[in-house]
Write a protein that binds this DNA or RNA. Structure first.
Lengths: 127, 127
DNA sequence: TATATTGTACTAGTTGATGTAGTACAAGTG
DNA sequence: CACTTGTACTACATCAACTAGTACAATATA
């Protein structure tokens, strides 16, 4: 499990862990059923408090990304989403709009943005 | 200027103001040179402290979105970006990846995501 | 069975961001 | 001149994030 913390980031540490675990799962670099690093292992590697890892793992479990079993470890869960279509659309459109608004102010043209979008879809194999 | 604050959001109030001003400018609903609501006006309308509006306006000026002149008001600036191409790409790719990772976990397929992306480009007229 | 491991829960405390409240001031307007 | 406007400053309260330490129930292992 290759996870890195950027202390200069304004994103909370526990949130960075959540982001990266979700990213690894989406990329297929963490497969369904695979065991994650333990709370204490990861805390030791990253030099942060075990409670911070615990908070991230609990959030990941609540989001259905992983399953945890005390005494055994944390494991990647099956892909599933209990959200309605409208909620899915609202969440993703909000993120998409924030990104496009930034693109407009950075004067990035549609052609370039579309190129990056296609590249990202390919990277995550959802094309 | 139609700005709304969502108190149930986990996004800071001053950040919501920044988001929405940038969005209005990107949509063309706030045009270059147009005058924004004054700090005290907006604070009165939204029932929040003038300092919070001031913080948002100062951030917007630092980001080159608006120009402020004491005694006169705050005005929409010309579109411009002094960021390098590599920085632009890094910022946008990061937002794009976070969005796509969520899409994967929500089991939204590429066709649907592409449809929403096209719709967003059209909305901001950068197609 | 006994021991170690693992995720979870809890308290206590620190730090920093956020927001409120109030005042004051320099620059521009009319 | 009086008035408006953005800015700056202090003081204060609240909350999220994080650290530190301890303890516990469930599981795995020898």
């Amino acid at each position: 499990m290759f996870i890195q913390i950027d202390n200069s980031s304004d994103r909370a540490v526990y949130q960075q862990i959540i982001d990266q675990v979700k990213r690894l799962v989406a990329l297929g670099q963490l497969k369904v059923g695979e065991r994650l690093a333990t709370v204490r292992e990861l805390a030791g590697d990253l030099l942060i408090n075990p409670n911070t890892i615990g908070k991230a793992y609990r959030q990941l479990e609540q989001d259905g990304i992983i399953v945890t079993r005390p005494g055994s470890g944390a494991f990647v869960a099956e892909l599933s989403s209990n959200l309605s279509d409208s909620v899915r659309e609202r969440i993703l459109m909000e993120q998409m709009e924030l990104m496009v608004v930034d693109a407009v102010h950075m004067q990035v043209d549609g052609k370039t943005l579309r190129k990056w979008f296609d590249r990202t879809l390919k990277k995550f194999k959802i094309e």
